[in-house]
Amino acid sequence: MIYPTDVCMTGVTGLVGHELLLLLAHIDEIKSIKAVSRRPLGRIPPKTDNIILDFENLEKHQEALKASIFICCLGTTIKKAGSQEAFRKVDYDYVVKFAKVAEHVGAQKLLVISALGADSKSGIFYNRVKGEMEEALRGLQIPQIEIFQPSLILGERKEVRRGEEFAQKISPVQG
């Protein structure tokens, strides 16, 4: 028997998070979704409460975020963030803070989007930060932690990503 569950997720304004939020809203077994973001979502799907928070103070809102499943789709690019330090704040600090809130409230499951090539010992800054984030998550006391490492994520974005456009053109088409 599948029991109704509640979900707390972040990264809901990005490509992957937004699509996932729309899918989750139509799954009968999900009774409620707490969509945590830094800015309003606009149209809010059914069963969804958009919780707007400053990620610097995420831990102060633990009780409002309580859920059995936590999903983190946070991520940026160094170009969009503006610096390596700002990138690390989003892709490491905020992800780990969100996961620690999940641990604190007794979440049963944590799902996180990382990246192919994540490796804490990598000479590539992006991959190293993703690897360090994964290591930090594995040390948490959450019964089930799933880390997904997609390669190129395709879809319509609001901003132009020339590197991804180039990679898409030279990548073999998967069907």
Results as ranks from 00 to 15, higher is better:
M1I: 08
T5D: 02
C8P: 09
T10D: 00
L15G: 08
V16C: 14
L20S: 00
L21M: 13
L21I: 09
D28A: 04
E29I: 01
I30P: 00
I30T: 01
I30C: 05
K31F: 13
V36H: 13
L41C: 14
I44K: 10
D49P: 10
D49S: 15
D49H: 15
N50D: 15
I52N: 10
D54G: 07
F55C: 12
E56V: 06
E56D: 12
L58Q: 07
K60T: 09
H61C: 12
Q62W: 12
E63T: 11
L65W: 13
K66G: 01
S68M: 13
I69S: 00
I69W: 01
I71A: 06
C72N: 06
T77V: 04
K80P: 00
S83H: 10
R88Q: 15
D91S: 14
Y92C: 01
K97C: 07
A99P: 00
K100H: 12
E103C: 11
V105G: 01
A107C: 07
I113V: 05
A115I: 03
A115H: 02
A118L: 08
S122R: 06
G123P: 03
I124P: 04
F125T: 00
N127Q: 14
R128L: 02
V129D: 04
M133I: 00
E135F: 09
A136F: 08
G139L: 15
G139W: 10
E146G: 06
Q149H: 15
L152E: 03
I153D: 02
L154P: 00
E156W: 10
E159V: 12
R161N: 08
F166L: 15
F166C: 07
K169Q: 09
K169S: 05
I170F: 05
P172C: 05
P172H: 08
Q174V: 08
G175S: 09
G175Q: 13
